[in-house]
Design a binder for these strands. Structure first.
Length: 699
DNA sequence: CTTAGGG
DNA sequence: CCCTAAG
């Protein structure tokens, strides 16, 4: 069974620009939180939710308008259209992604006003609140994304698994997740009076799970009998399926005239569900024709928009297999952690071990940072005036501006000897796992950007003794992924200076810029610098000693992005015995000439098939060089020696060494060939040509 | 755990 | 550098 990856993210209080209509105020702060299945956040999801919340508050005069936005990151085309019918309003959001999955999202205005409370109160209390409903015409797909309204969840009682907003869930480990109440407090501070009132209203009206938490994407299947089946992933009940009759599902039903009929009614649907796809198709085609091509197709991201692709079940399975297969932890291979952690729902248990587990017992001098605050900041965005302009310049298009967001609980442990670049990459990897590609991470230290990726953290001034609150990370659009044409209107996303926001969880849009400031970690740090010196001592005789004085052997980087409390906990449960399981790709440490010299020498002596001996002989004290590393280095050396000098990169290896590499290789190949009887054909070939020539002077 | 190779 | 199949 494929376990779904779940991602919990949310925003609160980011600004939504004015719906292009004069009667609407310039911007609305829209608090919301939502959870999706899959690890890809797209503007699509964002938009759907935002739109829903936006309309929640937009109860003014009925008039049709259309607005849309395009997701820069995922090459999805989003169209948001408001429809009105029966005096109720609904918002429809259409999108399609590359692989043809099409879905429609409906954000129905269901906030109960006094006028419509007559039907909503009893049979479906949750319908009183804003709900987001989606349909999909890819029902066959196991990963078809569905939206359910709050009612389903509510009726399932304990299955409303995504109500993580509650302090009981968020605050368990006391490691930086703020209870909602506190968040709300912060939120309020951020808002001006008007917005404050607005949010208060919403909060009052909606329960957490119905309004602030919009549970958007549980995989669902619509069976032939018209019942709506969905799987819900409970905190403690990983895969619980339940069904609900369509009658109970609040779906927007539409006719071809595109008028909404009864979208806000909990009453039975009049229209067979199957009729929807047809309409969808039509619309999708339209969208495709008009807009889709404008979105620069970036294949990688595009594919990532497939939720099921992000399940990476393959990774997980393989990793599990590996864990079973061997218990080694050397070299550290923990990368898969990122891919597997959230699937581990099947482990079921949540754990209170928290992250402390992961950093414990680490004797390396490392900085444990608990990034508990992330808020956006941008230096590059234009002036507020420009931004405002960009929002209002083009009618019928919505430009979302996320003022800030926060990625909670990005836990990172990294040696001081690590480079800034590796730190960035570590953070990036953590974040990317959540967001998908399209972002890069910037590092700010005391407000200044740290650009030199090659400086070590120590050199940069990031050390144990440092106040971690001076450190900041920024999520920036990946330069290689820039696609200027964000929306038909042509005005790109502008990102303003931001203010920290509370409830927010994960950012959704690669067009965004945000910053991460990190608090001092509650984790016990390991500030014993004594070993530092030692670990590089006493190896003066080895060729590797000249190298890398500044780096002590570093435990692999460790980054634990927090997806949610559950996933975090699951991870902990997973590796109770192996704390170091969570780590990162090792730092790249180019071989110095001295090291190459030592390697060549050892191989000349020992041959190419005895890497363990080579390691022992020449790199015994270089703990970061494994025999596999040496083997790999030899491989690359050989390659380097064979290519033209122009094609070589990196620190040039003396030609003399390269020739020794070649000679040693041919010699030992020959030795090997002598021992193992060759096929006759080979024998003939070898005898006649190459062998004799280059075996002379080795050893 | 080591080797050998592909990624 | 990582990952894995094979010894």
């Amino acid at each position: 069974m494929v376990l779904q990856k779940r991602l919990d993210y949310g925003f609160s209080g980011y600004e939504v620009p004015a719906v292009p209509r004069a009667t609407r105020s310039a911007r609305k702060r829209v608090p919301f939180r939502k959870i999706v299945e899959g690890n890809q956040i797209s503007a699509f999801d964002l938009l759907a939710t935002v739109a829903g919340k936006l309309l929640d508050k937009e109860n003014d005069t009925a008039s049709n308008y259309t607005w849309s936005a395009e997701d820069q990151s995922a090459a999805e085309t989003n169209t948001v259209k408001e429809e009105r019918g029966d005096g109720n309003q609904s918002l429809k959001l259409e999108f399609c992604n590359q692989d043809g999955a099409k879905a429609e999202f409906f954000a129905s205005e269901l906030v109960s006003q006094t006028s419509d409370s007559n039907y909503s109160s009893k049979e479906s209390p949750s319908l009183r609140n804003g709900a987001l409903v989606a349909t999909s015409d890819c029902l066959e797909r196991a990963d078809a994304q569905k939206l359910m309204n709050g009612k389903i969840k509510k009726e399932m009682g304990g299955l409303s698994c995504h109500v993580e907003a509650g302090p009981s869930v968020c605050g368990t480990s006391g490691d930086g997740i703020k209870p909602v109440s506190e968040n709300k407090l912060l939120m309020d501070e951020e808002l001006d009076r008007t917005d404050k009132a607005l949010i208060g209203e919403v909060a009052d009206k909606c329960s957490l799970e119905d309004a602030l938490v919009l549970d958007v994407k549980p995989p669902a299947i619509v069976s032939s009998d018209g019942s709506f089946k969905a799987r819900s992933y409970g905190d403690h009940n990983p895969l619980v399926s339940f069904t609900a009759k369509w009658d109970d599902v609040n779906v927007v039903s539409r006719d071809d005239d595109e008028k909404s009929s009864g979208c806000t009614h909990p009453s039975p649907l009049r229209e067979p569900f199957r009729s929807t796809p047809r309409i969808v198709d039509r619309r999708i085609r339209k969208i495709l024709a008009s807009k889709y091509r404008k979105v620069a197709p970036r294949s990688k991201n595009v594919t990532n928009s497939n939720f099921d692709e992000n399940l990476k079940s393959g990774y997980c399975n393989r990793s599990a297999y590996k864990r079973l297969r061997s218990g080694r932890n050397y070299p550290f291979k923990k990368r898969k952690f990122f891919y597997c952690r959230s699937e581990s729902n099947s482990d079921g248990g949540t754990s209170s071990e928290g992250i402390s587990d992961s950093s414990g017992n680490n004797n390396n001098r490392s900085i444990s940072i608990l990034y508990s605050k992330m808020h956006g900041v941008t230096g590059e965005s234009s002036s507020p005036a420009d931004q405002h302009k960009s929002f209002t310049s083009s009618n019928s298009h919505v430009k979302l501006r996320i003022k800030s967001f926060r990625v909670p609980e990005l836990f990172i442990e990294i040696p001081e000897s690590a480079t800034v670049g590796s730190l960035k990459r570590t953070v990036m990897e953590a974040v990317t796992t959540i967001l998908g590609d399209g972002l890069c991470v910037g590092l700010l230290l005391q407000g200044k950007k740290v650009r030199d990726d090659n400086k070590t953290l120590l050199q940069t001034g990031i050390s144990c003794d440092n106040q971690m609150d001076t450190l900041g990370f920024s999520l920036e659009p990946n330069p290689s992924h820039t696609s200027p044409s964000l929306c038909p209107g042509g005005s790109p996303l502008k990102l303003p200076r931001d203010t920290p926001l509370p409830l927010s969880r994960y950012p959704a849009n690669p067009g965004l810029v945000n910053q991460v400031t990190c608090d001092p970690s509650p984790e016990p740090r390991k500030p014993n610098l004594g070993n530092f010196i030692e670990s590089n001592n006493g190896c003066a005789s080895s060729p590797t000693d000249m190298f890398d004085k500044s780096t002590h052997e570093s435990k692999a980087l460790l980054a634990v992005p927090a997806l949610s409390m559950e996933t975090l906990a699951v991870v902990q449960a997973h590796k109770k015995s192996k704390q170091s399981e969570v780590a990162q790709r090792r730092i790249r440490r180019p071989f110095s000439i001295t090291e190459v010299e030592g390697l060549v020498q050892a191989v000349e002596k020992l041959g190419t098939g005895r890497w363990r001996d080579v390691k022992l002989r020449a790199f015994d004290k270089a703990k970061h060089r494994t025999y596999v590393d040496l083997k790999d280095k030899w491989k690359t050396l050989l390659h380097t020696a064979r290519i033209s000098p122009q094609q070589r990169r990196g620190e040039p290896v003396p030609q003399e060494l390269l020739e020794r590499v070649l000679n040693a290789h041919t010699y030992w190949s020959q030795q090997q060939a002598k021992q193992q009887p060759l096929p006759e054909s080979c024998l003939l070939y070898h005898n006649s040509t190459m062998i004799a020539s280059s075996r002379s002077d080795v050893d």
